Computed example of a mutant assay.
Amino acid sequence: MNRPDLKNLNLKNPIHLLAFGLGSGLARKAPGTWGTLAALPVWWLFLQGVPTLPYIGVLIAGFAFGVLLCEYTSRDLGVHDHGGIVWDEWIGLWITYLWLPVNGDWGWAWIIYGFALFRLFDIVKPWPIKWLDKKVHGGFGIMIDDVLAGIFALAVLQLTATLI
């Protein structure tokens, strides 16, 4: 790993490992997309089908934990919101999937659609996501734009599900 922006990254440190999405954020191209992909099997194994209240509890705990993970890791790297920090993508995708209609023949289509919606909002950053991304710093700043992208994607996904 001969990248100066990662000279202080230590994947043996569990905080760095989690912030970098178990290493998925190390992709040279599109680390956010790779990080979001890495969040899928974790969601599939542990969160799919979990009742709403415990699921929301996981999201809140994951957000709070993520603020600390992202703050600590970005400080260690000396780079605010390093592209390889993808814990925020994990939480954003899991927000998108909160009430995902995965039952029936269209389950995988909803999973892919939700993934695409989240990536769209995370990349395009419509207002106020872009504003938050620029104005709010630290671990909270790293997390909040992806949380909002997840909420936007959740809203569009649920609206689509209602209309179909």
Rank of each mutant, 00 (worst) to 15 (best):
P31A: 12
L77N: 10
F63A: 13
L163K: 08
A64L: 15
L120E: 00
I123W: 07
G66D: 01
A109V: 14
A153C: 07
N2E: 09
S74W: 06
L159A: 15
P41C: 09
W127R: 11
D81F: 06
L163T: 03
G57A: 09
A61F: 15
L132F: 08
L157F: 06
G138Y: 02
W99Q: 13
G62I: 01
G21N: 04
I95W: 00
V124N: 06
V156H: 09
V50M: 15
P14T: 01
D122E: 11
K135D: 04
S24Q: 05
W90E: 00
G49V: 02
F118A: 08
G32D: 03
W110N: 06
H80N: 12
N103S: 15
D76N: 13
A39W: 01
P4M: 07
L6D: 11
Q48Y: 02
M143A: 02
C70M: 08
L148K: 04
W90G: 02
W87F: 11
R3A: 15
L159N: 05
I91W: 00
L37W: 01
D81T: 01
S74Q: 08
G25H: 06
V50A: 09
D145T: 04
P31L: 10
L68F: 13
R75C: 04
F20R: 04
T160M: 13
I60K: 10
K12P: 00
H16D: 14
L40F: 13
P14L: 12
Q48M: 10
D81S: 14
F65S: 04
G92C: 05
V79A: 10
G138T: 05
A64E: 07
I85P: 00
D5N: 14
G92N: 01
G21Q: 09
G23N: 09
V58R: 02
D105T: 14
G114W: 05
F121W: 11
G84S: 12
T33S: 13
I56A: 15
G57L: 12
Q48L: 12
I60A: 15
L18D: 01
L100S: 00
L98R: 07
N10V: 05
V124F: 11
I123D: 12
T52Q: 11
K134S: 14
M1T: 13
F121G: 12
G150N: 09
A39Y: 02
A39C: 11
K7E: 15
E71N: 09
T96N: 10
H137V: 06
